[in-house]
Design a binder for these strands. Structure first.
Lengths: 99, 99
DNA sequence: TGGTTATTTGGCTATACTGCCAACAATATG
DNA sequence: CATATTGTTGGCAGTATAGCCAAATAACCA
């Protein structure tokens, strides 16, 4: 298939966004840097789970982190994902077409 | 967590895009309707696999289908996904941050 | 140093996804 | 009707993902 590696990388980025908790975290990060503890409060699952979700986002290239004292702050690397939310909601707004 | 169902639905849409073959198919569909056979030629995997990928996209609300004679034609329901490709490539363009 | 807080990592089980094959359904054509 | 063509569905084996706990790391403070 045409340029397989490129599609794999792109898919990795989108798959990283394909989880409710990670989506919620990314949306929160649109407003600015958050520490893991903030995101932990947001999504409610175990801290270790949150940490693993964040590493999925990091490996996909979507976020970056920075340590300050005990806390680790994550930030979005790419503002354009904001548009994803609008478009995804447009998809959902038409009725999902589920069969 | 805040409005769990909404995040689940959104995640479903993004996860549907999170596969190399499905991405390639969606990109092809940006140029217009294609039959399953066209997409089969494009991605190269078994027809049944292609069909299942298409049903993932359909269940996510991303595509619609139409039967004409023996052939089934799929089309994108939402043009805005075109922008996803630009943004995703922007993510990749910065170096993926893989650790 | 010893203790506390914030986060990551390892390991495990449960669940979901992928991709192939075989079987089935629907439509066209001889 | 028999047969070919186009897709879909069921089922299975292999792989990946999710989420929890426990243990490890790192930075801070007494």
């Amino acid at each position: 298939m045409l340029n397989d590696l490129n599609y794999k990388r792109r898919a990795q980025v989108l798959r990283a966004l394909g989880h409710p908790s990670r989506l919620a975290m990314v949306e929160a990060l649109l407003q600015g840097e958050k520490c893991v503890c903030d995101l932990h409060d947001l999504v409610g699952s175990d801290m270790s789970t949150v940490s693993k979700h964040l590493s999925v986002l990091r490996n996909a290239g979507l976020v970056d982190d920075r340590k300050e004292g005990l806390k680790v702050y994550y930030r979005l690397r790419v503002p354009c994902v904001a548009k994803f939310f609008e478009c995804v909601d447009e998809v959902l707004g038409m009725g999902s077409g589920q069969r």
